[in-house]
């Protein structure tokens, strides 16, 4: 399976997000040392109730835990935005 798709389906199952976007940015980092080791660069926006009551560190740890071993193998870097549905709605309203 394509790596970004795998990340997406894994996060979908673990966090049941209302909104989820995973982008593969590996092409932007081709030739970089991390890319040479085979790990990809990804970016994810995750809007989930699972983040309610968690601080920033705990939210990212929840994402890393869901991805498990992949964080040491196929994923070299993962830029994260982790929001609750309320925070997401507020940000959307701000940007309008």
């Amino acid at each position: 399976m394509e790596r970004a798709k795998w990340i997406e389906s894994t996060l979908q199952r673990a966090l049941q997000p209302q909104h989820l976007v995973v982008e593969d940015e590996s092409a932007l980092h081709a030739g970089h040392a991390g890319a040479a080791s085979g790990g990809g660069h990804f970016r994810a926006l995750i809007v989930s109730d699972a983040f309610r009551g968690l601080d920033r560190i705990a939210r990212q740890r929840a994402v890393y835990a869901a991805l498990g071993d992949a964080m040491r193998t196929t994923i070299h870097a993962l830029a994260l935005r982790t929001l609750t549905p309320d925070e997401w709605a507020a940000q959307e309203a701000d940007s309008r």
Partner: peptide
């Protein structure tokens, strides 16, 4: 740190997070 990526930032002995968190 129980954190799989680098960079990592500590302030006053306390783990603050990585790049995403520091940017925020």
């Amino acid at each position: 740190s129980n954190w799989p990526t680098i960079p990592q930032i500590y302030v006053d002995g306390k783990f603050v997070g990585g790049c995403d968190i520091l940017r925020e």
